[in-house]
Computed example of a mutant assay.
Amino acid sequence: MAQATLTIDLSALRSNWRNLNSMTQGETGAVVKADAYGLGAGEVAKALMKEGATTFFVALTEEGVALRKAIGSGPVINVFSGHMPGDAMALRDANLTPMLNSIDQMLNHVETLPGHPFGVQLDTGMNRLGMEPAEWSALRDIALSQRPTLIMSHLACADEPDHPMNAHQLQVFHQMTDGLDVPLSLSATGGILLGPDYHFDLCRPGIGLYGGLPFVEAAPVVSLDVPVIQVRDVTPGESVGYGNSWVARTPARIATIAAGYADGLIRAMGPKAHVWAGETRCKIIGRVSMDMIAVDVTALEDVPETVEMLGMHQFADTLADAAGTIGYEILTSLGQRYRRRYLGA
C-alpha cells in the first residue's frame, strides 16, 4: 500500500487542552477552524468535549454547520467571519453565534435574525477584522442593548512575548471594554502564555492544542508515516528527480517515498528537510514532486517500509522552518490522500 498514514493522537490533544486550561482562571474554548487545522474538526471537538470544552470557534458559517452536525446541539459554536450576506438561515438552523465585525454586519444581523445570539469582534490594532474604536463607540450602546454573548479581539504578535504590540493591544482592549458586563476574550495560545493580564473571561487556544509553537511544552499530536516505494543505488554523477537538481558525488542509496506537494508537503522544503528512519535522520534530496520525494538512505543498513515525516522526532514547525513558512501552513495543508488514524478516540 502506497498510501501514507496520518495519525492524530487525541489523548495528546486532550492533554494539551488540559495544560492550557490549567493556566487560566476563566473558560477555555478551542479554535477548530480549517477542519481543526487539518486534523478533523468533528473528531477533535468531540475529544475536547470529553475534557469539558463547551465553546468552539470556526472561521466560516459553513464550517460551523458541518461542526454542528458532528457534535450535536449543546456546545456554543462562534463564527469569526461574522454574519455575511446569505448566512441567516444557516446561522439560525445550526444555532451558530456570529462574531459581528462591523456596523453593516450588526444591522444585517438585527434585521434578519432578531433575538439570535451574537458576539462582537473589536479591532485593537491588528487591522484585520473587527470594529475600530470610533466605530465601536458609535455602536456600543445599541450593541449592548442586544445583549451580546461575547466581546473579543485578537493579538497580532502574541508569539513574540516582548513585542510592544501586545501591551498596546491590551491597553486598547481595556479602553474599549472596561466596565462592560459581557464576557471578554483576547487570547489564543500565545496570549495564554503571556499571562493572566491577557486572559479575561475566555481563552481560545488553537495551534497549541495541536502541538505547535509557541506552546513549547505541548505534547505531539500528529505523526505522518510515508511508505517507501522503491530503493535504488546511484553512482557518482547520476542525478535524481526533476531538473537534475541533485547529483550524487559519491555512491548513494536513494529511497523514493509516496508523498509530495499534493499531500501538503511544500515543495520549497526540499533542500533543507529530512525524514527519520528509526533514530536515523535521512536527508530529502532533489525536488519535492507532486506524489513522490527522494530520500538519501545511504546510512541505513536496512531500509524500513515507512519513514517518519512528522512525529516524535520532528513536528510541523521543523518542516515549516525548512520551507520558510510556519507550522500552521504545514498542518492546514495536509492533504486528503492520507489514511487517517485516530488514537484515544
Rank of each mutant, 00 (worst) to 15 (best):
A268W: 00
T306W: 03
A70Y: 00
L213G: 13
A188N: 14
I103H: 12
G115Y: 00
T24M: 11
D201M: 06
T306L: 08
E63A: 10
G130T: 02
G115V: 01
R337Q: 08
V44F: 01
Y242N: 12
R18Q: 15
A255W: 09
A88Y: 09
S333R: 09
S245H: 03
A30W: 01
T189H: 00
L343M: 08
E51A: 13
M309Y: 14
Y328K: 07
T325K: 05
G26W: 02
L10C: 10
V58Q: 01
G237P: 04
D93Y: 06
L20W: 09
G179R: 00
I77M: 10
P205K: 12
R340I: 15
L155F: 05
I293Q: 11
F56A: 03
D296M: 11
Q169D: 13
M152H: 02
S137T: 14
I8Q: 10
A143V: 12
S137C: 13
C157G: 02
R337C: 03
R68I: 11
T325H: 05
M165I: 09
L202E: 07
G40F: 00
A156Y: 07
F173W: 03
Y328P: 00
F80C: 07
A134C: 09
L139P: 00
R92N: 13
L107I: 03
D321G: 08
F56R: 03
V44N: 03
M292S: 15
N166P: 09
Q171R: 15
V226L: 13
V240G: 13
G286W: 04
Y328E: 12
A53P: 06
F200H: 10
Y338L: 13
H116G: 08
P304D: 07
I254M: 13
I142A: 12
I285N: 10
Q171G: 12
I293E: 12
F56N: 04
Q230T: 14
P227F: 04
Y198A: 01
S153P: 09
D302F: 04
E135I: 08
S223L: 04
R147D: 11
F118D: 06
G344V: 01
R253K: 12
R339L: 14
R128G: 05
L184S: 02
Y342M: 05
D263W: 03
A268L: 02
L184F: 01
S333W: 02
A2K: 06
V182R: 04
S333Q: 11
K50L: 15
A258N: 09
L6W: 03
G286C: 08
V295F: 04
P205L: 10
A88F: 06
A59H: 11
P196L: 07
V240F: 09
E301Q: 14
S153Q: 05
R128K: 07
I192Y: 07
